[in-house]
Computed example of a mutant assay.
Amino acid sequence: MLKRNIQKGYKMRVGVDIDNTVANLNEELVKRYNVSLEVYPSPDLPGGFFSTEEGLELLAQAKPLPGAAEVLRALSRAGHEVLYITSRPVLAINFTREWLKAWGFPRGGIVFVPRGFKKVFAACYGSDIFFEDDPGEALGLQEVGTWVYMLEWPYNSNVEGVRIQRFSSWEEIEESLDCFSQYRMVL
């Protein structure tokens, strides 16, 4: 899957979404509120929900997706720059940093951007690859030339693109890590 898109000798800038890409927020949403995962963002949640005390608590309690920390640590050890880009409310900065550290994710900057602006950040920053689950963000990221690795959820099952590669678990990415150790993604 990944080997056909590589060029030797480059250290990548890796953008990483947090919620439902490395943190399993969906599990908590379904368990507590019985929300549907067919539509994103969920119409079952009121606007601004994640800025409330209840929403912030939910973000803090989400568990990591299996294999995510291991894959990102391996990319970081190989010299690639890992940067977390999230649409969480800025109020979540302290516990987001602590959450990443507590679950063994590699150090990296944390950037908070409004939903729909990840492509702007990626274009300005020069992100080579981006791990993302949001359908709109994924489509925008590919528009600016970023390779998107999209973790599969029901709400993004119909999203396709030339620069979008789907994966069903972080273990899939882990099996392809040799492709990332010293290469850059190219067309």
Rank of each mutant, 00 (worst) to 15 (best):
L25R: 05
L25C: 04
V16M: 04
R4E: 12
K31T: 09
D17R: 15
G9W: 03
T21Q: 07
T21K: 02
V30M: 07
R4Y: 07
S36L: 02
D17L: 14
V16H: 08
G9Y: 01
N5Y: 14
E27L: 00
R13T: 13
V30N: 06
D19T: 08
K8T: 08
L25H: 01
I18T: 10
Q7A: 06
Q7V: 11
Q7L: 10
R32K: 12
K31Q: 15
V16K: 13
M12R: 02
E27D: 10
T21R: 01
V16Y: 00
G15A: 14
N20T: 02
K8N: 11
D17H: 15
K31D: 15
M12W: 09
I18R: 09
I18F: 11
R32H: 02
R13S: 14
D17V: 14
R32D: 04
V22N: 06
D19P: 05
V35M: 06
N34I: 02
Y10A: 14
N20I: 04
N20Y: 02
S36G: 08
Q7H: 08
V14D: 06
G15S: 11
N24P: 12
G9Q: 03
Y33H: 11
E28C: 07
N20S: 08
N20A: 05
R13C: 12
K11N: 14
Y33C: 08
N5I: 06
D19V: 04
R32I: 04
D17E: 12
V14F: 01
G15V: 08
Y33P: 09
Y10R: 14
E27K: 00
Y33L: 10
Y10P: 00
V16Q: 07
G15H: 13
V35H: 06
N20C: 03
M12Q: 10
D17P: 15
V22D: 07
V14S: 05
V22W: 02
N26S: 12
V16E: 00
S36H: 03
R13F: 13
G9L: 05
N5E: 15
V16T: 12
V30K: 11
L29H: 03
N24Y: 08
V22Q: 07
S36K: 10
N26A: 10
I6G: 07
K11D: 15
T21L: 03
L25P: 14
K31S: 14
I18P: 04
T21S: 07
R32M: 08
N24D: 14
M12N: 08
R4H: 10
E27Q: 00
Q7T: 07
M12P: 03
G9I: 05
A23V: 07
S36P: 00
E28G: 01
M12T: 02
M12S: 09
G9E: 05
R4I: 05
R32A: 10
D19C: 07
N20V: 02
E28S: 11
E28K: 13
